[in-house]
Design a protein around this nucleic acid. Sequence first.
DNA 1: GGTGAAATTGACAAGAC
DNA 2: GTCTTGTCAATTTCACC
Lengths: 152, 152
Amino acid sequence: MIFDDIDKKLLHLLQQDSKQTNKELSLKLNLSVTAVYERIKKLEREGVINKYVALIKKEKIDKSFIAFCHIKLIQHTQEYVVKFEKDVANLEEVVECFHISGDYDYLLKVIVSDMEAFREFMVNKLTSINHIGSTHSMFVINEVKHTTAIRV
Amino acid sequence: MIFDDIDKKLLHLLQQDSKQTNKELSLKLNLSVTAVYERIKKLEREGVINKYVALIKKEKIDKSFIAFCHIKLIQHTQEYVVKFEKDVANLEEVVECFHISGDYDYLLKVIVSDMEAFREFMVNKLTSINHIGSTHSMFVINEVKHTTAIRV
DNA sequence: GGTGAAATTGACAAGAC
DNA sequence: GTCTTGTCAATTTCACC
């Protein structure tokens, strides 16, 4: 799919605030309400817009502790890898998991309430997954930037 | 603020799909439409729900290349740190930036179209920010998990 | 805390330019 | 591909339990 400037601006606006009415969007884009409506439906149909979600302020639900965990597997057989990825994806504390290049195999982003909860997560959940060789954790001191919006 | 089971379930549902109507939510929660409405408004007022956004499928806009960059600063004076954080936050390719513990000072998540775009980003944007000592980049081979939803 | 009905406003479909 | 009109369904308010 090819995007014109209006599509790009529309995607930008919807990534900032998806609760804007089509009328508000039409004013910002100098378009009619129907035109906005049609463009959005097209973007949804094509799968460009994946879904609409509510974003929660972590601090308000006592989930202010962020850690990144590097993980190295013992072995890299197909079976081990598939099992590990499935198990990790099922852990609710893990919000992101990437297979990466470099010294370690995986990088996980973990969100919990505090260091004690993180310790429990490591001992009871993460390291109870088999095939994990070594881990290395880094703790977030300060979240400088975090956005879900990607420039089109 | 204290959450009962209905609040938790409501937050869970809205983090999955914020475009559900209050009627749909009322059926899932065994509540009246107005009760759902009031609970959502309260969560918005209290700042628990931060905002509503559209999520875009990276692949559809040719932004499939993810990299993590470790960065160490030359110096750590107040002035240098503030300037660096401000400059990095303004880079559109940087979607996340954390001040972290460990060998490096910062961890950046960068999203671009391909390795060539990443190279350009490093040469023209990131390393043109002053005070950067050393960097170490890891490339994402596969995105195993990525969610914006946090368990309440 | 919750409901149900009325008023307002936006979403959506059909047809014309 | 965009605009206008008209209908329907949603959100929002209010009186009440």
